[in-house]
Design a protein around this nucleic acid. Structure first.
Lengths: 148, 148
DNA sequence: GGTCCATCTGAGACACGGTATCAACTAGAC
DNA sequence: GTCTAGTTGATACCGTGTCTCAGATGGACC
């Protein structure tokens, strides 16, 4: 997948251009890799995929691109239950992820209701909440259906 | 703090004995270090503290003790916003932590209300929740008061 | 108290994830 | 086409956590 450039640019690249950073070949490559991922992916997985599909791509560049994408809100880092890190591509401003431990796909979960929970925490204890993180792990609808 | 053994054993050690594992000198040392921590602490901090107070204590032993304590539910690992890990001593079964980014202390937050949020997620999307993690960061009541 | 064995320990090598450095390259403005 | 700042890849490096293994030690049993 290195020749055809007739396809429409993925939103990731558009976002890069809009952010005023250079749209370089390596960044295109990382964007393509990220877009190709189905569900969450670890840095190691991305590096492996890169080695296969974009041999010249440096490891550091992948990390840098991921950092950049994070800064731009195009991907988000999630913390796995085992302490490791993974990434998911996303677009909306603030949300959470429900990660399927079977297929690896992640669903976005909105804040509905959580805000109240946090407000109550604040009210009761006087704790002033700056930021929070909610991660949900389990089995997604299709995997539940598949195993039923 | 290496001589007096007239003080009552901290709950950590009692728990060790109850769990049927050996109550060894190194484990006593790590337990003391953990107990001495005020709020959350990173492994690095614990290692540094150990170097000062228990020079003979090996790094691997600290990690192992921390693992053991986690298994026994005596400490819990939290994921910091920057991707790093920290630990908090705790006793209750399932709860979450509200971590003060100013003083480092952590308050336990119960599930009150969160269960409903998760139930709604499940109901709407068919996602079957196995486990979840909520971490709240902000400023605790006393730090808010202190800075007012 | 003494003996014994499984458990535990410490040292150090190792694997891994992520960062810093730096010369060379290139996107894109002019 | 030219130029420059931003970007890149290679590589060295650092911190965190794990593994191995010979030696030490807790505590059970005598």
């Amino acid at each position: 997948m290195s020749g055809g450039h007739g396809h429409s640019a993925p939103p990731l690249l558009t976002a890069l251009a809009n952010a005023g950073v250079r749209v370089t070949e390596p960044r295109r490559a990382v964007a393509a890799l990220v877009t190709a991922q189905d569900g969450h992916f670890t840095t190691a997985e991305l590096v492996t995929a890169a080695r296969a599909e974009h041999p010249g791509l440096g490891r550091a560049t992948i990390f840098r691109a991921l950092d950049l994408f994070t800064l731009l809100g195009l991907v988000e880092r999630v913390d796995l239950p085992d302490g490791g890190h993974a990434w998911v591509a996303c677009e909306t401003a603030h949300h959470h992820h429900a990660i399927c431990t079977r297929c690896g796909r992640s669903t976005e979960v909105d804040d509905h209701g959580l805000a109240e929970v946090l407000a109550e925490v604040a009210g009761r204890s006087g704790f002033r909440v700056t930021t929070h993180r909610l991660e949900v792990f389990g089995t997604c609808a299709s995997c539940v259906a598949a195993s039923a």
